[in-house]
Amino acid sequence: MTPTEPCPDFDFQQGSWRVNHRRLKVRLAGCTEWEKFPGTCEQRPILGGNGNIEDNLLHLPAGSYRAIALRSYDKASGNWAIWWLDGRAPHRLDVPVIGRFEDGIGSFHADDLLDGAPVRLRFLWLRTDTRSPRWEQALSADGGATWETNWTMDFEPA
């Protein structure tokens, strides 16, 4: 990639998608009960291709809501930053996860809080070379020694 070329890392996700969500009912509590729900999203590039915005509609059992993922690429570091903005809390951006793609897998991390306790947050992008990419979210209460995957999103072209 030359200095003027946009970063293609998220090109696999551009366009409209049906999303199959699976989320643990309780996080970091030994819960094994998952709730499944549908959603949709549309992703488009911004910042001349060195960023993108993903507009989501999630249909949770308790009710639907909208949210966006906002992503930007720093050419100097080679890292992406990803922020999540939940329509139910429209003035609060979540802490950004920072990371990059290597060998087709995107790995992004941040320090965050869960119910006031410090946790390590991880996003993974998997199967990015297929027509059915997957996103996973995991938390660690022990600084990243162990991880609990608590949310997955499987994408299908709309």
Rank of each mutant, 00 (worst) to 15 (best):
W34E: 03
G15R: 03
G39Y: 08
N56H: 14
R27V: 06
K36C: 12
I68K: 00
D74M: 02
H21R: 00
W17I: 08
G106N: 09
G106S: 07
G104H: 04
A67W: 01
R66Q: 14
Y73A: 04
E54V: 04
G39F: 07
W84G: 02
G30Q: 06
H91N: 13
H91R: 08
A89E: 13
N52Q: 14
I82K: 03
A69D: 10
H59Q: 11
A110R: 03
F12H: 14
P61M: 06
R66F: 02
D112C: 02
S77E: 13
F12L: 12
D94E: 13
R66K: 13
I105W: 09
S16K: 11
R92M: 07
W84I: 02
R92Q: 14
I98Y: 05
I68S: 00
D115H: 03
P45S: 13
L24T: 14
P38R: 00
R23V: 12
T32A: 10
N56R: 06
S64I: 02
R71D: 07
G63L: 04
L70N: 09
G15N: 07
G39S: 11
S16F: 10
G30L: 02
A62C: 12
A69F: 10
A89T: 14
D115E: 14
R100H: 14
R27E: 12
I53C: 08
H21Q: 04
D86A: 00
L85D: 14
D103I: 04
T32H: 08
I98P: 04
D74S: 12
A29T: 09
V97C: 14
R88L: 13
G48A: 00
R22K: 13
S107H: 09
G63V: 08
V95E: 15
D111R: 03
N79L: 14
E42L: 01
D86C: 00
D55Y: 05
Y65L: 09
D111Y: 00
G104W: 01
W17V: 07
S107W: 03
G63Q: 10
V26K: 15
Y73P: 07
W17Y: 09
L24H: 11
E102H: 09
G48E: 01
G48D: 02
Q13V: 15
L47N: 09
